[in-house]
Computed example of a mutant assay.
Amino acid sequence: MQCPDCGDTRTRVIDTETSTDGSSVRRRRECQRCSFRFTTYERPEWDSLQVKKRDGSIEPFERGKLRVGIKRAVEKREVTDDAVTAIVDAVENSLQDRQTRIINSSLIGELVSEQLRDVDKVAYIRFVSVYKAFSEPEEFLRELDAVLDAEVDDFEPPS
């Protein structure tokens, strides 16, 4: 294990503790060169989510990467950080509930889209335009029309 402070590979385990649900191990480590202490977490690889990208490559699911994508879509919109966290939590929980550990990136995009559509329509259009890789203005128009049509259907006149 490499020290995050000095980069030396000579570290030793000071303390080991199993999580309450038994799914991971927390280890306190100390660098033998600079005495920097840090914590690592170990989880069985088969238990972690993997994302299958459009090009067929597979990489570990990264909550931070999901958050960055959502933050980019809600940039300069009145969407709170708590709302972004709630979206990330909802998507991650939905993925964890599935029977498979390898998830298509398109499924993640659909789950985020569903959540964003309810939170902020503009952020939804921004996200979908990247997720679906819009290349023509007509694609924006079709998606915008779908959002506006849904808004009209949901509209209830004041009584």
Rank of each mutant, 00 (worst) to 15 (best):
C6Y: 09
G7L: 03
D8H: 11
T11R: 03
R12I: 05
R12P: 00
V13A: 14
D15N: 15
T16E: 03
T16P: 00
T18Q: 11
T18W: 04
S19R: 01
G22T: 06
S23K: 10
S24E: 12
S24Y: 03
S24W: 00
S24D: 06
V25C: 01
V25E: 02
R26T: 13
R27T: 09
R28M: 01
R29N: 06
R29G: 05
R29F: 05
E30A: 11
E30S: 10
C31K: 01
C34D: 15
S35F: 10
T39L: 10
P44M: 04
E45I: 11
E45A: 14
W46Q: 08
W46L: 11
D47C: 02
L49I: 15
L49G: 09
V51T: 03
V51D: 03
K52C: 06
K52F: 00
K52V: 14
R54I: 00
R54F: 00
D55C: 07
G56Q: 06
S57W: 00
S57V: 02
S57Q: 07
S57P: 00
I58V: 15
I58H: 00
E59M: 09
P60K: 09
F61L: 11
R63H: 08
G64K: 15
K65E: 14
K65H: 13
R67S: 14
